[in-house]
Simulated assay, not measured.
Amino acid sequence: MAKVFFTYVWGQPGDPAWPLTFAGKAERTHAKKHLSEGDIVFTVGTRGTPTPPADHGRVLAAYMVSDLEVNTRDYVDPNLDDASWIQAVTRFPVALHPVGVWGITSANIVFSTLVGPLTPKHHLQGQSRIVELDPVTAEPLLALERRQLPVAVPKTVFGQGLVAKANSKLAPKHQGVFSGAFAQHEIWYVYVLVLKDAKRKELAFKIGYSHDPALRAAAHNIPLAPEVTGLKWSVYLEQPTPSEDSARVVEQTLLTRFSKNRLTSNGEIVSGLSSTTIDASIADIMRKQETGT
């Protein structure tokens, strides 16, 4: 049986609906630990600013979330100069991407009236975390009228890639309940292979794009004869992107950024860099890349 939770938020979920946000990674980890497939989180408007007065203490939305961890800055247009959105992203930097979101349309939606008295501890925890309700208390919430909302798509290529990968896994399982914007059957990755010697020392990195990075690693190992030389390529990173074109652009931008580190014998291999530098560069490029959405 699905469990029911509630949490306090600043306002309506939006249309399309934003992911379920949290003040920090600890709160998001707590949610992932307690949520199972099919569980519902009801959002309730806080009783003060910046929640609009009309939403104070009212049940606003119902979320069914996945375990996909996302960053809220990926959902905001980087060219948008809006102080309220900047404040929200700063206050709630992390989120879980939703499988489905429903706006509550019932007329009588005052949370305290529907669920009855809760302990002060419930309300305090609900300000930053999801709080589970027992089945009897949750019953009036599940009876509320609602309408399904489209789920917001990230504005950055980095975020779109993560959601595209999640969609490809969730869509068959949820039989269309999970709404996404990506129809591709293959996920394209920007990948980084790392070349290590027998002592596990990192010697170089190979940057490319493919829908199967592991296959690319295997192909590069054939001429190396790892069992003889002790040298072996392995997949260090595979970052999903929403399309082959996006993956190609990220790959080329990354290689241009590291032009001074590219080998003359193979321009897709770089040396003299740390793995953390490459990680940070990929995320930076993908968040700055125009998505066309």
Results as ranks from 00 to 15, higher is better:
K3H: 05
V4E: 00
F5Q: 01
Y8P: 01
Y8S: 05
V9G: 07
V9M: 10
W10L: 14
Q12Y: 06
G14D: 05
P16Q: 06
A17D: 06
W18D: 14
T21P: 02
F22M: 10
K25D: 05
A31P: 04
S36D: 11
I40R: 13
I40F: 03
T43W: 01
V44Q: 00
T49E: 11
A54D: 10
D55H: 14
H56S: 14
H56W: 15
R58I: 03
R58S: 08
L60W: 05
L60F: 06
A61G: 09
A62Q: 09
L68W: 03
T72D: 00
R73P: 04
N79Y: 15
N79P: 02
D82N: 12
I86E: 13
A88M: 11
A88G: 05
A88Q: 12
T90S: 10
T90I: 07
R91C: 02
R91D: 13
V94C: 13
V101K: 04
W102H: 04
G103H: 08
G103R: 08
I104N: 01
S112N: 15
V115E: 01
V115C: 04
G116P: 00
K121H: 02
K121D: 02
H123L: 09
G126D: 05
V131I: 09
E132W: 01
D134E: 12
P135T: 11
E139T: 14
L141M: 04
L142R: 12
R147I: 05
R147M: 05
R147Q: 12
A152C: 13
V153W: 08
V153Q: 14
K155D: 05
G159Y: 06
G161N: 06
L162F: 07
L162C: 09
V163I: 13
V163L: 02
K165F: 08
A166W: 03
A171S: 12
A171R: 13
K173A: 10
V177F: 15
G180A: 13
G180E: 02
G180T: 09
A183M: 06
Q184H: 15
H185C: 03
I187P: 04
I187K: 05
W188Y: 15
V192S: 11
V192Y: 00
L193M: 05
A198C: 01
K201N: 13
K201R: 15
E202A: 13
L203C: 10
G208M: 05
P213N: 06
A214N: 14
A214E: 12
A217E: 00
A218L: 11
A218E: 12
H220W: 13
N221M: 08
I222A: 10
P223D: 03
P223F: 06
A225N: 13
V228D: 07
L231H: 10
S234N: 11
Y236K: 15
Y236Q: 09
E238P: 02
V250K: 04
V250M: 04
V250S: 10
Q252S: 10
T253K: 12
L254D: 02
R257G: 01
F258S: 04
N261L: 06
S265P: 00
G267R: 08
E268C: 07
L273W: 07
S275E: 02
I278C: 01
I282L: 15
I282A: 08
A283W: 00
R287A: 07
K288F: 02
